[in-house]
Design a protein around this nucleic acid. Structure first.
Lengths: 203, 203
DNA sequence: AAGTGTTTGTGAATTATTTCACAATGGCAG
DNA sequence: CTGCCATTGTGAAATAATTCACAAACACTT
């Protein structure tokens, strides 16, 4: 089984390769790519070895081919629909963040307890009330959700999400969520990231 | 030396303990706290053992005391000034995010190439031009920065930050930054988090 | 004050991840 | 076509992180 960390790094390699391609670079050695990705060459090679062998000895990797293979492995080839729950400050910013589509994701709708509240920013996605959510998820067969609700209600919302078939949650609420083990949660906690930095810079 | 992952978890324990205190709970066992934090009890105990012994056998941990000790260990006791660079969509949202102060951080100023651009949202922090940044950092002795600039200029900005004494960077730009090894970078890449979820939910 | 039950703290064992070291392979020059 | 050079792919070794297993310590009851 491929380690979780390897999967993370595959995403990084993917982005480095995309930049190489933009610069019309056709082949790359594990040394060069590893450097660009901030890892050691042996680690890169080991990571790739988990799902195949793609290089040419003495030469390196074909940028396009490797891009293709990693993309397949990650399942990024097709556009994944995502919903966002909780349209506060952060939620609104994420909705207007144009960096997802390029990477194969599209936030197709947002949900909030108060969908009609006045918000300062124009966004292209529709905002619905929370009770419309289960139906929407089922009908559109959505599998992934971004959670940016206040911590106090997060667990409740998650229970609903899980019940309606969501299998992956990107959680911004500063709380540890309880989910069945077939549901995957990735936590992004900005305060913890800062705290972590703060620890390491003061030794 | 304390593992990096342990430091991350200490931050999580801290937040769980804070909630216990809010609920007027005075003591907690490693089992209960570990469950709240989403880890195994032995891991919690091992983590704590890295920097001391605080529990009472047969009873558990004093919530207040442990809170205090972890907080000291993390160096969260004092308020850390932070600057933010790049006031676009995401930067603006982070500026208005009120979740940092509570955790001991304050974004005291923001910098942007176009500080006077019209922005939809009201924020309390001042926005300065990029050329004011080095002076500001040195005068206020800022050590931490949040980076939310476009990827194309990120490395450039980082070089300036490093030169002026920044030691910790929370990077939202989707690019691998090159920094001297005494500078710490924590990356937050939302597209990668989504990609990662997507991989694991489809098996 | 002794006995019982609980829970910590930790050395040892296990498991996971990273790094090393080098044989195998193909490109390329002559 | 042969030999050299560069670079991959990969078992083995090293390192790191987690989990186990249990003795030690304390609270609480009687």
């Amino acid at each position: 089984m491929i380690p979780r960390k390897t999967i993370y790094r595959l995403s990084i390699y993917l982005r480095c390769l995309a930049r190489l391609r933009e610069n019309s670079i056709g082949t790359v050695s594990s040394e060069a790519l590893a450097k660009a990705a901030g890892v050691k060459p042996t680690q890169l090679r080991k990571d790739l070895a988990y799902f195949g062998t793609f290089g040419t000895r003495g030469l390196g990797y074909d940028v396009n081919e490797l891009l293709q293979k990693i993309s397949e492995e990650l399942g990024t080839s097709s556009l994944q629909p995502v919903i966002l729950v909780g349209v506060g400050n952060l939620g609104l910013a994420l909705l207007s963040y144009r960096g997802f589509e390029k990477e194969g994701f599209e936030i197709i709708a947002a949900f909030d307890t108060d969908p009609d509240r006045k918000r300062d920013k124009k966004i292209s996605q529709p905002i619905f009330g929370m009770h419309d959510m289960p139906k929407f998820i089922r009908e559109k067969n959505v599998k992934m959700a971004i959670l940016s609700v206040p911590p106090a209600v997060a667990q409740n919302v998650v229970n609903t999400l899980v019940d309606t078939g969501i299998a992956g949650i990107l959680n911004f609420a500063p709380i540890v969520l309880a989910v069945p083990e077939d549901v995957m949660v990735n936590n992004v906690n900005l305060a913890i990231e800062l705290e972590n930095l703060s620890y390491f810079i003061q030794g």
